[in-house]
Design a protein around this nucleic acid. Structure first.
Length: 367
DNA sequence: CCTCCACTCTC
DNA sequence: CCGTTTAGTGGAGG
């Protein structure tokens, strides 16, 4: 970048309908028909939800998060295929694609399995060159993986993300500095990262429906309504301002596992049996990474699908299975005891990581 | 300041 | 009709 330039050029690359597209790639017979990748809960033959659907299926109203049974109803009479998630495989494909992205940029920040922010400020002189680079990246990914992606190019992460969303699949949208405000202004507030259904509703109460209206709203009032960090972020983002750096993310700061129980219950024995399996999972994950942890918690989803979390801090960092199981038992019994509601799902969560030093035992010595 | 936990969001 | 995983903010209360 020239010394006079102050602006950045940031991209957001987003693999299109990722899981379903990967399935289309490995089985060409899927192409041209609705494809629905499912998370089966194991409770009954088809209980579970849709993880991702291809655009053919989306045409029938099939979206992420809807029950599989509902998706089947909507796709009745079509040649639709329903496939179980194959997370390991998607992860391998993702890693190969991310490697391609990485070698084309200076700054890289992966967000989830199918998205990454790319900082190309030092690699291209202007937005026109950035567009050419984006095209090259798309060609490379297509050439070696036969996958399409959508890329948004902008002066910062907020704009790049929205630009990528605006035109998919297989899109490429460039929004340069001068166009930012005009680009953002008419969009619904939900276009901004961090504004979901609930927040959009609250903004609606304030008479804010578009990003332009949000940009014009008093910042102090936003801070009052949404808190210091969020309020200030909404104000800046709506005005097209965002200084967030493109930065590689560190290690995860928590590990959790969750399962759907065979049947709704509040029998501690049944819930604990499931929870103990989850303990084994999370503890071995932590050990693989050489981590001790200070907090253990449970997640309980009741019959009416409300979610509760309970956690406690341990007196010392550990990765000892018995300690974890005891903690989980204690928290769970306390919760089930004071709660008549039956559970549908249960989860175990650990956090407060401390890297295990060489020679450090999991039984920390008290001084 | 720390702990707990609700809430929101994302893939 | 109903999953999974992780991050982050912020309020309440110690």
């Amino acid at each position: 970048m020239g010394a006079t330039e102050v602006g950045r050029i940031v991209m957001l690359a987003d693999l299109d309908y990722f899981y379903a597209q990967v399935e289309e790639r490995r089985d060409r017979s899927l192409i041209g028909r609705p494809v629905v990748v499912c998370v089966y809960s194991g409770r009954t033959e088809e209980s579970g939800v849709v993880a991702t659907a291809n655009y053919s299926a989306r045409g029938y109203g099939v979206r992420s998060g809807i029950p599989i049974a509902l998706a089947k109803k909507r796709l009745l009479g079509t040649e639709a295929r329903f496939l179980p998630m194959d997370h390991e495989f998607y992860k391998q494909v993702s890693e190969r694609v991310m490697a391609i992205l990485k070698r084309n940029v200076d700054g890289f920040e992966q967000v989830g399995i199918d998205e990454a922010y790319l900082d190309v400020s030092n690699r291209v002189a202007n937005f026109h060159e950035a567009e050419k680079l984006a095209r090259k990246i798309k060609d490379e990914v297509w050439g070696s993986e036969s996958l399409t992606l959508s890329i948004g190019v902008g002066p910062n992460k907020v704009i790049a993300k929205i630009a990528a969303d605006i035109n998919k699949p297989n899109g490429l949208t460039v929004v340069d500095d001068e166009d930012s405000k005009a680009f953002l202004s008419p969009l619904p507030v939900e276009s901004l990262v961090g504004v979901g259904r609930k927040t959009a509703e609250r903004m609606g109460q304030l008479g804010i429906r578009t990003v332009g209206e949000l940009a014009a709203f008093d910042e102090t009032a936003l801070i009052n309504e949404f808190g210091r960090a969020l309020g200030a972020y909404f104000h800046r983002a709506a005005n097209g301002e965002d200084e967030e750096a493109v930065q590689e993310r560190g290690e995860n700061e928590s590990i959790s596992r969750m399962v759907t129980l065979k049947e709704d219950t509040n029998d501690p024995k049944k819930v604990l049996e499931a929870a103990y399996t989850l303990c084994e999972d999370v503890v071995s994950k932590a050990r693989e990474r050489g981590l001790l942890f200070r907090r253990v918690g449970i997640i309980a989803v009741t019959t009416d699908l409300t979610i509760r979390m309970r956690e406690k801090s341990l007196t010392a960092p550990t990765d000892d299975m018995q300690t974890v199981k005891r903690a989980v038992k204690e928290i769970l019994e306390k919760h089930l005891g004071g709660n008549r509601q039956e559970l549908r799902r249960v989860g175990v969560h650990i956090s407060g990581f401390v890297r295990r030093m060489k020679g450090q035992s999991q039984l920390t010595t008290f001084i």
